[in-house]
């Protein structure tokens, strides 16, 4: 070995012991943090589960389909709240998805000068940061009067549908209700869907757009047949995230849904969700009522878990096609 090449055998193990200890320590630290996230989740689930045991033992699985919620007789059933949770989230998704994807498209194409577009994207992200109590307050002040009118219009024109019917004797839509909650939720999740869908759309390879245009596709054909399908996994992912938010949203919904413990087919009537039930009753509950609330919380936990798993599955499937 010549002197110019140095001594390779000694050069390999020259790092100091402190540096190595730091490395090992750092790896250990990241492991603890990573495990912490899982433990926290499990811990919450276990605590809620333990507290729910008396209710689970008393009512069994029938709890989910039973409609009675009577603290005086100590009989509880979660159906109106499960139903309200699912319906209000569905209304929100139904309204927010088309608008959200439309906004995302508008802000990902070059319809606007870049500067105005950047400002709009910033505003969109700001919308997602508004606290939900503010949305709720705005819902009470602005949305309830507006939706009373819109709901009345729906009832007069489409009242023959059970969805927009009012009970006999009632001719006017009272203020709060499922429809108001649905619209508030839609407005709250719109920025999530729009922002994530826009990210997915602008990350589609520009070569694909050029290929489509090069084959004689118009801008709209390119968007509908290439850009949207290519971004679909991101759009579905964003939608599921939004759905998770809509299922669990508490404050704004509690403020505008009317908190009626009945599952009615009509969306124009007051209703309640699991989250609003918890917010309303938790402070004064004890005994079996508290345990029943924990049981509903467990159901909500399960629902959001289901949505997230479903999202993961769908995103993977879209990626393959």
């Amino acid at each position: 070995m010549s002197a110019a090449t140095g001594n390779p055998s000694s050069a390999i193990s020259q790092r100091s012991a402190t540096s190595k200890t730091l490395d090992t320590g750092f790896i250990l630290l990241t492991r603890i943090f990573a495990a912490g996230v899982g433990i926290l989740l499990l811990w919450i689930a276990i605590i809620v589960g333990i507290q729910a045991i008396p209710a689970i033992q008393t009512f069994g699985l029938g709890f989910i389909t039973s409609s009675t919620w009577n603290p005086v007789k100590d009989i509880y059933g979660a159906w109106p709240h499960v139903y309200g949770t699912l319906v209000s989230a569905s209304i929100a998704l139904l309204l927010a998805l088309p608008v959200g994807v439309g906004v995302a498209l508008f802000l990902s194409e070059d319809f606007l000068p870049a500067r105005i577009q950047n400002i709009l994207v910033f505003v969109l992200e700001l919308l997602a940061a508004i606290p939900s109590v503010v949305y709720g307050f705005w819902g009470i002040v602005v949305l309830i009067p507006t939706m009373r009118y819109v709901g009345g219009l729906l009832n007069r024109t489409l009242g023959w549908l059970p969805l927009f019917a009012l009970p006999p004797g009632q001719t006017e839509v009272t203020g709060p209700g499922m429809h108001v909650a649905g619209v508030v939720l839609a407005i709250m999740i719109l920025p999530i869907i729009a922002a994530i869908s826009r990210d997915a759309l602008i990350s589609v390879a520009p070569e694909l757009r050029q290929a489509a245009l090069g084959l004689g596709a118009t801008r709209w054909e390119t968007i509908l047949k290439i850009m949207l399908p290519a971004a679909s996994s991101g759009i579905v992912g964003g939608t599921m995230l939004a759905l998770g938010r809509a299922l669990g949203e508490t404050m704004a919904v509690t403020m505008v849904i009317g908190n009626a413990k009945a599952a009615s087919t009509s969306v124009l009537l007051p209703a309640s969700t699991i989250a609003s039930l918890l917010a309303n009753e938790f402070a004064e509950a004890d005994g079996l009522q508290l345990s029943s609330l924990m049981y509903t919380a467990l159901i909500l936990f399960g629902l959001t878990l289901l949505v997230n798993v479903l999202a993961e599955v769908i995103v993977r499937r879209f990626r393959q096609i």
Partner: peptide, 11 residues
């Protein structure tokens, strides 16, 4: 028609 530098089949 056009063929591009990087192969760009649609997904």
């Amino acid at each position: 028609g056009m063929v591009f530098q990087k192969p760009n089949p649609f997904p």
